[in-house]
Computed example of a mutant assay.
Amino acid sequence: MRFTANMQQPDTLRAVLYGMSFLRKHCLIRITDGRFTLVSFKESLGQSATQIWTHLELADIFSEIQIGSLDNDHINMELNLDHFVRALKSCTSSSDTVKVKLAKRGRIPYLAVSVDSPSYTSIKQEIPIKVIRESVLEGIAEPTIPNPDVSLEIYRQVRSVLRICDRYRNLAKHITLTANRAGELRIAIQNDDVTVEATWTNLTLMLSCDSQDDDDDSQQQVDKETLYSVVVNADELFDTLRISYASRRIIFCISDRFTLMLHVLLAGLDDHSYVSYYIPSLTL
């Protein structure tokens, strides 16, 4: 198995890895068909666990790529996110050259990250990995969810949403998110001690494939005002939103009482590179 490449976007990749690491410490990296995919989940892959799927165009992140494996040139490895983030922190300037290479010491595989800088001697760090055969991953697939009932783009408001979630998670274990097609998003907590709600309006509605061409104005108005909601773990929502500093757009997609999906478009990359968080709605 062979993988060597120069990294073109170390800051972007480090930001993505760092954002993922708040929620999970280990991830699966899949290099297949021009894609660099990072998958992170709990022990269970069922709908009860939040999943993170990061899809990056391989050529957007790396150059001078060499790939070879007995699994049709597909490479799968598991590693600790904190180790990868720490290795990329050695890159401090745009003039630094970052190289990655799969290697072995004896029979133990690792990912070597080398940083060459004009200002200091080359730094090489070795990240322990677990190589996984393609056949083992046949049952792993991105979650299938219904078309969102409402999808709203959060742009300038993302920092205020993050602050509210940080405040609310200190008051309650669960947060309710409610949205409608009029561009309104509400975030609320309710327990025996406190009931609090924050509202954002005039958010951009993202059209989905289930949009209907209906000439009945009154029906359209009802659809716009209909509320859709999910209940999620407060800490997990906050940790998920920490990816916001690496994003240029975040789209909140709510499938009523089923799933909250956060679709994160990354700064410096086109729409083909993104992070998707799948957070199942809880039944309290």
Rank of each mutant, 00 (worst) to 15 (best):
F3R: 04
I129G: 05
T32R: 14
T121C: 08
R30W: 01
Q212W: 01
S90Q: 12
D239T: 05
V136F: 11
I189G: 02
H26C: 06
A234L: 00
E78R: 11
Q51P: 01
H26W: 05
D214V: 15
V150Q: 03
Q190G: 07
L171G: 01
E43G: 12
L203E: 05
L260D: 03
G46P: 06
M1G: 08
D214I: 15
I164H: 05
I132Y: 04
G183Q: 08
T50M: 15
E236A: 05
R181L: 05
Q8M: 09
I189L: 09
D11P: 00
S48E: 14
L282Q: 15
F252I: 14
L260W: 06
S218T: 14
H55R: 10
V131C: 10
K104M: 10
Q219N: 10
L17M: 10
D33M: 06
E64Q: 15
V161Q: 03
D116H: 11
Q66D: 10
I75G: 04
C27V: 07
C209T: 13
L177K: 03
F41T: 12
R167I: 04
F84T: 00
L284T: 02
S244H: 11
L45F: 13
L265Y: 15
P146E: 13
S48V: 06
D271E: 15
S255E: 12
C209M: 10
K101Y: 00
D216S: 13
S273C: 15
H174D: 07
I279R: 06
E57Y: 05
I61F: 07
Y110I: 00
L111Q: 05
G68I: 00
T97K: 14
A182M: 10
D270H: 09
D60Q: 15
S90V: 01
V16A: 07
F22C: 01
R159L: 08
T201G: 01
K99I: 02
L262F: 03
T97R: 12
N6T: 13
L111W: 05
M206T: 15
S244D: 06
L58V: 11
L81I: 14
C27H: 09
E142Q: 14
P146T: 09
E57M: 11
